[in-house]
Design a protein around this nucleic acid. Sequence first.
DNA 1: GTACTAATGACAATATCTTCTCAATAACGA
DNA 2: TCGTTATTGAGAAGATATTGTCATTAGTAC
Lengths: 136, 136
Amino acid sequence: MQRNTQQRAAIDRALAEADRPLSPREILEGARRSVPDIGIATVYRAIKDLLAEQRVVAVDVPGAPPRYEAAGKPHHHHFLCRQCDRMIDLPGCPGQLSRLAPPGFSVENHELTLIGRCPDCAAPKTRRPRKQPARK
Amino acid sequence: MQRNTQQRAAIDRALAEADRPLSPREILEGARRSVPDIGIATVYRAIKDLLAEQRVVAVDVPGAPPRYEAAGKPHHHHFLCRQCDRMIDLPGCPGQLSRLAPPGFSVENHELTLIGRCPDCAAPKTRRPRKQPARK
DNA sequence: GTACTAATGACAATATCTTCTCAATAACGA
DNA sequence: TCGTTATTGAGAAGATATTGTCATTAGTAC
């Protein structure tokens, strides 16, 4: 039987508060605000369960492992900031994207990511720190 | 001084003949038609050099490592067949994609991939084999 | 409060992709 | 043809992300 642990609650809270796709590490950091000693394995276990329950969806990231956000949002796409590495929801979809495919292709889905600088990083005064290069 | 080896020529040929983004493994298989004993390390070394010379570009693949195709083509996007796993060029771009981003975002680039079945796999008679599950 | 056991944290183990090492080979200028 | 050395193939090693193991902890029914 499934138990309501503080760790699961902290992970739910982190995902809800962010309202954007988070990497497992970002989920970990968010959850640590509630449960400082939570471990990364617990985050991966929770992601697996949440995906199975369809309470979160995986979001593909160009050139990186997927991130995860709450399921049930209307169809939308994402912006990836190449400075702070955060992924942010963009409302809406241009539509008609399937028309790019010539006849004979069966289009079932599409992935669209805009890449650049988010408002925080584009503004010269309030820069967020650059993404940390992977720890050695 | 750079030498013109059979291996490099085979890799160039594989990329040119495919005219679509290839994974390192696909490049290896293509090149082996010319040089049967070529190794994967040689393919990675060639990719690195070709990227530095800007003779090929990396193409991001949702949920997989990047593939590589000849540089210099007009702006275009790609189709990913979820059955045979091939990536295929699509001509053109819907345009105006930057408009999805609210004011404040600085959009520098975009990635668009349509996903589904390519004509070969969608047609019931001439199915290509499914992607091989990664070798054990 | 107790007993049962799901869930956890730490870290080992996988899995996958890419790069490095090095002896052997082959491209090419002389 | 010969000598030099860039390039190669094979396998080891590295890098990173994810999952497995297991003793311990903590939800929950009673």
